[in-house]
Design a protein around this nucleic acid. Structure first.
Length: 282
DNA sequence: CTCCAGGTTCCGG
DNA sequence: CCGGAACATGGA
């Protein structure tokens, strides 16, 4: 029925609730969700992960249990802000999300709070994804680019997408037609992959970096959103009134090192969980 | 009611 | 290159 996977240095709660992935829902002591086309229930018991028998390998891969977190932490800069964030996020892993699902989800994330992004994901899944069942619970996979490409903008707007409907539809059509080939993107270096992703409507610097980090395992990609911008300005450029976004981008691309994406997610999660209402500390 | 949210795009200095 | 504004929706 169920099987256990060794999962040392892993925090399932932090990993699923840190804002990198949006569709997992709590179920009892664990979670249920979809890993690509496969429904999965998962629960952490100490240093082990309990999943349905047969899904051990899939779970280990999805949750990136092979990422050497201790070595990754050791590459971070040793400043107080980074050290505090890394300690706070011990066991948080960047999961391996399917590329299209990841790109599409972050297209819908523009100017939305995390709970809203989750709500949109669930609506799209329920209406246009495939139904699965796991432990008596309903699960829906993320709709394929082909499925979304067949829809009208009005149908997508009815999923509470707002102005993001046009972007998601345009991106779905380009991917479905092969105008942008995500399998090919995966073979490119970070810079070239970013350029290619930015051809999709609704994909700019930030969304492209989220896609690279969460959907293409580019662990150096450093997405700069409103939260990270606050963190960088408050903790790394205090009392400097004129720091351009270009300056922040150049700084973060070098300063946080080869696992900058991990550093970014740790800073993001730490700030979101410990800073009151996003403001202050300036 | 007002403000803002894991932005992108377009437009004028 | 830079700052502003438009773009939808929902929760605080």
């Amino acid at each position: 029925m169920n099987a256990a996977v060794a999962a040392p240095d892993f925090d399932l709660e932090a990993t699923l609730a840190c804002g990198q992935v949006f569709h997992w829902v709590r179920a009892g002591a664990g979670w249920v969700g979809a890993v690509g086309e496969t429904a999965m229930s998962v629960e952490q018991r100490g240093g082990r992960l309990v999943v349905s028998a047969g899904l051990e390998t899939l779970a280990a891969h999805y949750f990136a249990l092979d990422h050497p977190l201790a070595e990754i932490r050791a590459t971070f800069p040793a400043d107080p802000a980074m050290t505090a964030a890394a300690e706070f996020c011990r066991g948080l892993r960047i999961v391996r999300q399917p590329a299209w699902e990841c790109v599409a989800t972050f297209i819908t994330s523009a100017m939305k709070q995390v709970p809203h992004i989750a709500q949109i994901s669930h609506t799209l899944r329920r209406r246009y994804g495939s139904r699965r069942e796991i432990g008596g619970r309903e699960i829906f996979t993320y709709p394929t680019a082909e499925a979304l490409a067949r829809l009208s903008e009005a149908e997508l707007r009815a999923c509470a997408l707002g102005f993001r409907a046009k972007n998601l539809l345009g991106a779905a059509r380009m991917v479905a037609e092969g105008a942008v080939d995500l399998a090919h993107v995966a073979t490119l270096d970070d810079a070239a992959a970013r350029v290619e992703l930015c051809r999709l409507p609704g994909v700019g610097e930030k969304v492209a970096n989220c896609a690279l980090l969460f959907g293409f395992e580019r662990v150096r990609a450093f997405p700069i959103d409103v939260w990270i911008e606050r963190v960088l300005r408050a903790l790394y450029f205090p009392r400097k009134r004129t720091v351009t976004t270009a300056r922040l981008r150049a700084f973060s691309a070098e300063y946080f090192g080869p696992f900058g994406g991990y550093a970014q997610q740790y800073l993001f999660h730490h700030a979101r969980k410990t800073w009151p209402r996003g403001r202050s500390l300036s």
